[in-house]
């Protein structure tokens, strides 16, 4: 037939190294990275963790959304630095002054540590998000023995955010065409977004309802459903799970131990 797709064939790509790592390993990796960064107290270790997570992300794939999300988190971390540098309650030592305003060492240190931890988690989760798709997770969970209905409910929760964002993008585009608000600054964006939040939610719910009807019609809860063997081969999944879980247990144990010791 005659329709011509204007998109290039993206999904036919070859299997990459990160496709050999299963979703649960990736989730455990996020957990371990988070625990490590909270266990660490010196900035060199945080820098090491950030570098490690960042490299993983660089060697998997970087999309424009990742860059945007990173930019936004860096912006938040920067504001945190400024605020803590100025107003942290334990501030004593002036590190430097800008236009007569003093920035304090304690606050900056505190904010840097906190900011690094957040960044580690964001980078590690970013790695998970860009290297797995909702459908991969769904298949994996179903093969791990969950019923498809349960998987679907879990996945529709993951699905709702991109859906809302997609709808939001369309609304913003419509507002640009139908309106005069240029939506360049954050304030202009907020002003255009706030009044449409309720219609946005209604629209998204409406879509979920249509999808749910259609899935029932397509028989997704048919008792005869038999999941196909996934064609992706995960390497050493079992070993990774055990290893990463052990690291997590050790880290949590150690943290608890130091806490308890600290009490006495």
């Amino acid at each position: 037939m005659t329709d011509q797709s204007m998109l290039s064939d993206e999904s036919a790509g070859k299997s990459k190294w990160y496709n050999a790592v299963d979703p649960i390993t990736k989730l455990l990796f996020i957990l371990d990275m988070a625990l490590l960064s909270f266990a660490g107290t010196n900035l060199i270790m945080e820098a090491g963790l950030i570098t490690a997570a960042f490299l993983l992300l660089v060697f998997s794939k970087i999309s424009s959304t990742t860059v945007k999300a990173l930019g936004f988190s860096l912006f938040l971390i920067f504001t945190m630095l400024v605020i803590q540098g100025l107003f942290y309650s334990k501030n004593q030592t002036v590190l430097f002054s800008v236009l007569g305003i003093n920035f304090y060492k304690e606050g900056l240190m505190y904010a840097t540590t906190l900011g690094s931890r957040v960044l580690v988690i964001i980078l590690a989760s970013g790695f998970f998000m860009v290297t797995t798709t909702i459908s991969e997770n769904a298949k994996y969970l179903e093969q791990s023995g969950l019923s498809y209905k349960t998987v679907y409910v879990l996945m529709s929760v993951c699905y709702i955010l991109p859906e809302i964002m997609g709808n939001m993008r369309k609304i913003q585009q419509a507002q640009r065409v139908r309106g005069v608000n240029p939506q360049r600054t954050i304030l202009q964006k907020l002003k255009s977004v706030l009044p449409v939040l309720i219609p946005l939610v209604i629209k998204t719910l409406d879509q979920s309802m249509t999808r749910s009807i259609s899935l029932q019609l397509r028989g997704f809860d048919n008792p005869k459903r038999k999941a196909l063997k996934a064609d992706t081969h995960y390497r050493l999944a079992g070993m990774w799970h055990i290893g990463l879980t052990m690291i997590a247990v050790v880290l949590i144990g150690w943290k608890l131990w130091t806490k308890i010791n600290g009490l006495f």
Binding site: S11, T133, I134, S135, E136, A138, Y152, M155, S156, Y159, Q207, T210, R211, S214, L215, R218, F220
Partner: peptide, 8 residues
């Protein structure tokens, strides 16, 4: 609206 949303 008919798509499963779970297919790549």
């Amino acid at each position: 609206g008919q798509l499963s949303g779970l297919a790549d």
